[in-house]
Simulated assay, not measured.
Amino acid sequence: MPKLTFITGAILVVVGLAGYLFSIAKGTDHWTALIPSLVGLLLLVSGAIALKNLMVGVHIALVLALIGALGMLMPLANLGALFAGEAERPAAVLTALISLIVLVVYLVLGVRSFIQARRWKKANA
């Protein structure tokens, strides 16, 4: 899980930076485009913690991923406008969508990992 946490964090940092650079190119530099990068940085720190204490680091990362995923829901209210080509800030909606997908996949894999670990413990107890 620490490796997956690092990969997820790195992807989110790149997504956030790309969204921010795109908003600068459009002349509307919104710092909120960096929110996925912030979540990604926190996941990277959690991954580092997981290298020292696996359970603590991964639990922190999964809580951060859940909060981050919930935070990405608000910009997705404009998803219909994005597909219609009428979104006010299409980069923000697209960045939120990519971030949400990455975070949900990470959450599912993390929960599966915990379930497998519990089953393994029961089988070897």
Results as ranks from 00 to 15, higher is better:
1 M>S: 08
2 P>R: 11
3 K>R: 13
3 K>A: 09
4 L>P: 02
5 T>C: 10
7 I>C: 03
11 I>R: 04
11 I>D: 04
11 I>Q: 00
13 V>Q: 04
14 V>A: 14
14 V>S: 03
14 V>Y: 07
15 V>H: 04
15 V>N: 11
15 V>Y: 06
15 V>R: 07
16 G>K: 03
16 G>V: 08
17 L>M: 13
17 L>Q: 02
19 G>N: 05
19 G>A: 05
19 G>P: 02
20 Y>C: 07
22 F>T: 13
22 F>H: 06
23 S>L: 00
25 A>F: 12
27 G>M: 08
28 T>Y: 10
31 W>T: 13
31 W>M: 11
31 W>F: 13
31 W>Y: 14
34 L>S: 12
35 I>E: 08
35 I>G: 00
38 L>P: 02
39 V>P: 09
39 V>F: 13
42 L>S: 04
44 L>P: 07
44 L>H: 05
45 V>H: 02
46 S>L: 02
46 S>Y: 11
47 G>H: 10
47 G>L: 02
47 G>D: 03
48 A>T: 02
48 A>Q: 01
48 A>K: 02
49 I>C: 01
53 N>H: 14
55 M>W: 09
55 M>F: 11
57 G>F: 07
58 V>C: 03
58 V>S: 07
58 V>K: 06
61 A>Y: 03
61 A>M: 02
63 V>M: 09
65 A>S: 11
66 L>S: 15
66 L>G: 11
66 L>Q: 03
68 G>V: 04
68 G>Y: 09
70 L>F: 13
73 L>S: 07
76 L>G: 01
78 N>P: 00
79 L>K: 00
81 A>M: 09
82 L>R: 07
83 F>E: 01
83 F>D: 05
84 A>V: 06
85 G>W: 10
86 E>I: 05
86 E>N: 11
91 A>F: 10
91 A>Y: 10
92 A>D: 09
92 A>Y: 07
95 T>H: 00
95 T>W: 00
96 A>E: 06
102 V>K: 05
102 V>H: 05
104 V>P: 02
105 V>T: 11
105 V>D: 11
106 Y>V: 04
106 Y>M: 06
107 L>D: 08
108 V>W: 14
109 L>E: 08
114 F>Q: 11
116 Q>S: 13
116 Q>G: 04
116 Q>E: 14
117 A>H: 08
118 R>L: 14
119 R>W: 11
123 A>P: 01
123 A>Q: 14
125 A>C: 03
